[in-house]
Structure formats: C-alpha cells, structure tokens
Design a protein around this nucleic acid. Structure first.
Lengths: 216, 216, 216, 216
DNA sequence: TATGAATGAGCCTTCATTCAT
DNA sequence: CATGAATGAAGGCTCATTCAT
C-alpha cells in the first residue's frame, strides 16, 4: 500500500527510511555483481530478508530501485561539485578539489557507479530517465567550465580541451572497476596524480593538495 | 541440426559465414542499444529477417552471440597489439602505434565495445568467459610492458605508472560512448593527443606519428 | 519464490501440502493417459485450475513431478514390504502377504504405476534417478530373499527360481494395464491365485490367506 | 517426394528397402533407449548418417517409424501364432510352441518390444493406431483360445483361466527388460519353464520340448 | 536421392507484480 | 507492515517438417 506513501509519524518514518536504505544498498550490490536484469526480486528478497511482496513497501517497482541508486550517486556528487565550483579559488584548485571529491564519492559508492555505468543503455534511451541524464550532464558541464577557466588563466595546458575532458571522464568512470578502499593509493592521491596530467608545469606542486601528496 | 557445425562445402560455407556475420553484427548493434538481456531473440529475428528458430542455425545460443561479439572485438585487436609490440621500434613509438590501432579498432567496432563494457558483470563472473577475460588481460599486459619499457628508457614520464595505465584504459574504454567515425578528430589524432599525456617532453614531436599530426 | 521451500507456518503448510498432493495426482493421471512428454504444463494447468506459473510453487520442475510420482509409489510399498519381511511368519506367508500388499498398493496407484512403467527409459538412464532405481531394486531384493527362503524350507517349488522371480515381477507390473478397483476379482484374490503358482502342493490351502480365498 | 512412393525398379527398390530397414532399426534402438518423444529427427540423423531431410525419403513422419516398428514386431508374430494354432497338435503343445515362438521373436526384437510397451498410451489412445491395437488383440485371442482348449481337455490346470492369461501376458511382456541373447537360459528354455506353470502335472514332461529340456 | 536452410508452433520456465490474509 | 500464493506475459530454445537446390 505504501511505496509512494512512506509513513509520516517520525518514529515509523525513521525505521522506514532505514529499511529502504538497506534495500537500495542491497540492490546496488546485487545489480553491480550480476546486472540489473539478471537480478530478480527473489534475489533481493534473499539479500534483505524481506519476502518478495514486502519489497514493494519500499519501492514502487524494480526500476524505482535503479533510479534511487542513480540518485544516491548523482545528487550528493552534484551538490558537492556546485559547492566547490562556487568557491573563488583558482581554476586549478577547483579541478583538484573536484577530482578529489569525485573519486572519494566513487570510492564510497562503487556498486552504484558500476550500475550507473552498465545500465547506460537504459538511462540514455528511456524518457523516464531524463532527470538522471540531466544530472550527469550538469556535472560534466561544471567540469568543462573549470577546464575552460584553467585554459584561460594558463594554469592548465591542453593540446585539445575537448579530448582532455573526455579523457578525464573516461579515467574516472573506469575507476570503480579497480579502485578499492584501503588500496595502495588513496582516492585523493589518485585525484592529484591525474590532475597533474592537465596542470601546466609552472602551476604544479603549488596547490595544498600537491604539497600533502609530496610529503606522503 | 547444425548451429555448431557450419557446412563444409565451400559454396555453402561462404553463404553461411556471411549470414552468421550479419547476425553477429545485428546482435552487437541491438545489444549495444538496448542491452543484452533486454534484446530478445524476436528482436534479432526482426533485425535479420530470419525467423526465430532460424537464428539457431548460426549460433548455439544467445550467449554464443555475446561471446562471438567479444571475440570479434578482441582477437584482431590482440593480434595487432602483438605485431606492434614485436617491432623493434622504441617504446614511445610502440605506445603511439598501439593507441592508434586500438582507437581505430574501436571506431570500427563501437557496438562491440559498448556491449563488452556493459556486460562486464557477465564476463568477469561466469567460468565460461575465462577465455575472453584472458584476452583482455593479455592486451593490458602488452600495454603495461610498453609503459615499463618507456619508463626505463626515459621516453615516457609517469608520476605513477600504475595509475597511468589505468587512466589510459579508462579513457580508451570510454571512447565508444562518444567517438564517431567522421567526427572532428580522427581516431589517430585522438591517439596522438592522448599519447602525449605520457610522453616525456623531450621525446614529444619526434615520432613520425607526431610529425604527421602536426602537419594536420 | 518457493517451489522447494514449503511454508513453515502450520496452517499454510497444510494447505500447501494438500494442493501439492492434488497436483501430483493430476500429473500422475495425465502422464499415464498421454505420456509424460506429451503432457504439457498447460495441460496440468487446465487439470488443476492453477495458472501455468502457479504450478511452480509446488514443484521445481516438471521432472520433479515425475520423481514425486515415483516416490509416492515406491516409498510406502517398500515400507510395507520391509514390515512384512521382518515378521517371523513362514516364507510362504511372507510371499502371500507381500503379493497382497503389492497388488493392493498398485490398485490404489494405477496411474503412478503406469507412469513408472512407461518412463523406464528415463528412470534407468539418468543419474538423477538413482534413488528411485535403488528403491525398485530394494523391493525386488526383498522379494528374492523370500523366494530363497521358501525354496529352502520346501514351501515353494521352482523349476528355476530366477525365472520365477522374473515371472512374478512381470505379471504384477503388467497388472495396472487391466486391474480396476471393483473388478471381478479383488486384489487380494488375485494375489492368492498367483501366489499358488509357486507354492508347493503340500503347502497350498494351509495359509490363512488361502482359507479366506476358498470361502469366497 | 517419396516416403509413400518407394521406387519401382527392382534394383533401386532393393537399396531403398535396405535403407528403410536400417532406419527403422535405428529408430527402434533409439526410441527404446531414450523414449520416442525424447528422440529427435536429429538423433536419427546422427545414427543413420542421413541428413535430417533425407530421413523423409524413407518415412512420411516420425510417427510412421513408430508404426513400422510395431508392425515389424506384430506381423511376423501373429503369422507364426496363426500357423502354430492351425496345427492339429494338442493344446499343451500349442501353448508350448506359441510361447517358444513368442519369446524367440522378442529376443530378436528387444528394442521393438520395449518401444511397443512404453508407447502404450499412444497406441491405445489414438484412432490411427487401431490396426496395431487389433493385431495385439488378435494375438491375445489366439492365446486365450489355446488356454480354453487346454482347460477343456485337462492338459492344463488353472485356478482362474483369466488370471492365467494375464499372468502369461505380463511375464512375457516384461521379458524384454532383462532377456538378452546368449543369456543363461535360451528363450526356448524359458518358454518351457513358464509353460509348465500352467500344464497339469500329468501332462508335464510328455511334450517334445520338455524332453529336450530335460536332457539339457 | 540427398542436403542443409528455414520455418513456426509449442514447450518449460522465470519473473515482476498484485492481493487476500 | 509483511507474507506467501497466484498470475500471465514473455523469453530462450527445440523440433518435426518442408523445400529449393
């Protein structure tokens, strides 16, 4: 009966939210491991302890879980990106901070990110996914704007800025395939190394991030 | 009664191979557009003009098509990579040639590549995909070897060679999402631009590839 | 999401068992009439009132029904046979009681028995049928042991004991083709008549069974 | 185009008949091993060396093979039975000779017999099988007539003649499950042992068959 | 004759979703 | 809230049969 109608009394609401979160997390994990289509409601039932029917108290549909996963991935990321870009730091600091936040977020949302990547055909094709697509585009737009600014003030050097953006998107989107928390390099270190690929030699090593990294 | 047994008479064999190829290509396209699971045999039937049952003359199963797509993608790529790496050119030339061949191959196999990417969970999980996994690993191994050599002879400069390899894999694997034949940049130009991200300043512009690019 | 997992709450469990039983009985009847392969899940759906999908709440597969039919046939029969053979009655009484129990069981499981007979090629060939095969062999073993004992104490007379056992198996296994409850002869009468084919003349008419039959 | 139109020129006709025979034999064997429905035209293709389409030169349909198998089983048996019953030998000799011929025929047609048995549901249900059913009934009629005569002249002794006939049918129909050429007992010996179950003590050992058996 | 391609109906099974309890 | 029963639509695949060559 609910799914769209979560309880309003605060005590119940808290429990509801908690369980919904657990469901989404379980879904992200299973979808990432087996694929969205290859994961059945029965699998989710097994992973959550909820019976098949019970799942529908927390989501209107299986696709709703997929949307929730994407939202959980994109909403905080976009919010952070906007905050960072609104700062009056120079463009190279923006880039560095963006990359760091981005990789940190991915590191804590690896299954979400894997799902987001492998369901591209769904997200890009279906009309009901417009909102999600828009968020992804907004994030890329912020990134591009930073690169433009960096090129303008000479703190970044590109042979071809468009290709640089695409390279950046590629390397970061690929990270969930290998990045693991507690790995040899922290997400922030990786961000700094990659950032340097585009920072003009003169500006390198100047930022706080860089300093920290050098000490490590 | 065949599916796994193509005809032996040469005339028929040619016809068979041709139609099988058409089937695989259609499958690659549809799988890329809608996803493997969301594409039904009926969809393939519609796309090829073959009745549903007739498809099974050319493949033993739907999964067989997926494997064929990956093989068509990886086999020639691996062969080219091996040829290039066997050359006695310097490491930076190897890298440039590898990247060019790689991006050219992707450009002519975009649907294959999209399918390969989004079916990662299948390829990485199931035992019958071992051979495919192995090919991917072999290719990455070749690439890594070239980077090691480039670092050794000073023609390449990495802050962290491991991260450089992962960055490279990421940017190229992401290319099928936006690369289109006849686009603003040729595959070879893109290869050269990206290659330069890792070439030591002193070596840049020295290679034949670079020269050509500069003239363009 | 069950099929193999019947509900645990007692009230539901009773309902579940009852419906599963109805399904198995319907399957036995249809399989006997048309053959296992020629009976579709749709036929079972029609016979049970359950939609096609609903059948899979009560069995994991069509083959599971076949196994259940064989188990329902063999398990109680084997149990009875063991009980009878454990008695300290003389061998000829054992034989008579075994035959009576056997034919009574067949009379109340005619479809099961027909199915068991006509699916011999499946039961004998496939590895997953080992348990069923074993039960059949155990029953025959019990029978043989009784014949050995009867031959030893002179209460039975065989030209060739092996052929006597095979004759017995043959005539009883053939019974479901013509035996009908309420027919001219009761299952017990038939058992007694056939039993006498192997009882030494001196012992005939001595057993309780025989006495009852004479009166009839 | 043929199947129903075998060639008329004698030379071709011989080859045609030979191949058709090979096909029927292969079918009998496979049907007996796996069941009629579980045997595909592809299986027959593999067993005969004929391509799938080629099989239809020798039979109009898969069911035609099943009918041919039954005919090959029943026609010669019925012919022999009629010949034996037409003799003016005494009933007990008739029975003995019938049983011998019957078991010998089964011994050389084991797969046919297994198929005939396990396809009972088809043979007994479908209208197009009337002719086959009729042959089976005719054979049983001949047998019953002999028992009647044996009971009348006192050479046979039955507690219940109907049950004796059914016992006989059962034991012989079950024989293909275990009878093998070259086994411990010849088909004729088996026939004699089983025959004696129904021969009145006074008549036993008198017949030629019995004499031969005693010497062995 | 014989082949292999092709068909199209049918089959078992899975699964997201609904609903009475 | 939660459950388990039930549905009905698909989906992948098999297969007897036909037919052009």
């Amino acid at each position: 009966m609910s799914a769209t109608n979560p309880p309003t009394r605060p005590a119940l609401r808290a429990r509801y939210d908690e369980r919904r979160q657990a469901l989404i997390d379980a879904a992200a994990k299973l979808f990432a491991e087996r694929g969205y289509e290859q994961t059945s409601i029965g699998d989710l039932s097994g992973a959550t302890g909820l019976a098949a029917g019970g799942i529908y108290h927390y989501t209107a549909s299986k696709e709703g879980l997929l949307i929730a996963i994407c939202d959980e991935l994109l909403d905080p990321l976009l919010a952070q990106a906007r905050t960072i870009a609104a700062t009056d730091a120079p463009p190279d600091a923006h880039l560095r901070d963006l990359l760091r936040a981005w990789l940190l977020h991915i590191e804590s949302h690896i299954p979400h990110m894997l799902v987001f990547t492998q369901e591209r055909h769904t997200i890009e094709r279906e009309p009901q996914w417009r909102a999600v697509r828009r968020k992804r585009e907004d994030f890329e737009q912020i990134l591009d704007t930073v690169l433009v600014a960096g090129e303008a003030d000479g703190s970044m050097a590109f042979e071809d800025r468009g290709l640089a953006l695409l390279a950046l998107l590629g390397m970061v989107n690929y990270a969930p395939q290998w990045l693991r928390p507690g790995g040899r390099r922290s997400a922030e270190e990786i961000a700094d190394v990659w950032c340097n690929l585009f920072i003009a030699p003169a500006s390198r090593g100047a930022s706080p991030g860089r300093a920290i990294y050098d000490r490590a």
